[in-house]
């Protein structure tokens, strides 16, 4: 589990997931834009992950859970098919700024071997591209710009790590020449 103060973990929990209400809740309609009304049974709303998880997991002994969770739109089959086809062209940041962290959290709730498989392959393929872009001094400006804009937060950190370490070696070499 990540640290309590980890800002990335907090932001991950704030991302929306698709929830379906299994019960009618009086007076909760304002979430769905229905001021003063009731939340009808079967309504689909997007709730933050922390709230959705709490409501879905906690349940009374007698009754069914209040809501059921669905995979967020960022992990919809359409997206997974696109990732299978070509991981590099998908704009993960537009789907979810913390795409991998969100996926990891969803995988804690759902067991889905295929999803793990697709995400692992995606991450590997994209990491290789990230490394190439990070070492290419004009990568961030040239044709790689679109790809780099679509990196999620985790991948951005990777890019920074790769870029910084190669920069450190270059700085050391330049230092050596100077003195």
């Amino acid at each position: 589990m990540s640290s309590y103060y980890d800002i990335d973990a907090i932001l991950t929990d704030a991302q929306k997931v698709l929830c379906t209400f299994e019960l009618t809740v009086p007076g909760l309609g304002y979430i769905d834009g229905n001021e003063g009304g009731d939340m009808k049974q079967g309504t689909k709303v997007e709730l933050p992950l922390w709230l959705g998880e709490m409501l879905a997991v906690s349940q009374n002994i007698s009754s069914s859970p209040l809501i059921t969770l669905d995979l967020p739109t960022a992990l919809a089959p359409r997206v997974l098919n696109a990732l299978k086809a070509d991981p590099r062209t998908v704009d993960l940041r537009a789907l979810a700024p913390h795409f991998y962290a969100l996926s990891a959290r969803m995988l804690e709730l759902f067991e889905d071997d295929e999803l793990v498989e697709v995400l692992t392959e995606t991450f590997k393929a994209r990491s290789a591209s990230i490394a190439d872009q990070a070492h290419n001094p004009r990568g961030a400006l040239g044709d790689g710009a679109d790809f780099l804009r679509g990196l999620d937060e985790n991948e951005r950190q990777l890019f920074r790590a790769a870029h910084d370490s190669s920069k450190a070696v270059k700085a050391w070499m330049a230092d050596l020449k100077k003195g």
Partner: peptide, 25 residues
């Protein structure tokens, strides 16, 4: 040695990310 120093941060990050994705499995 220098190559290890240069690759450490990136490779460590990738392994970490893969581990997080595969944690549930």
């Amino acid at each position: 040695g220098m190559e290890v120093a240069e690759g450490r941060a990136f490779i460590g990050g990738v392994v970490d990310g893969l581990r997080r994705i595969g944690a549930s499995r």
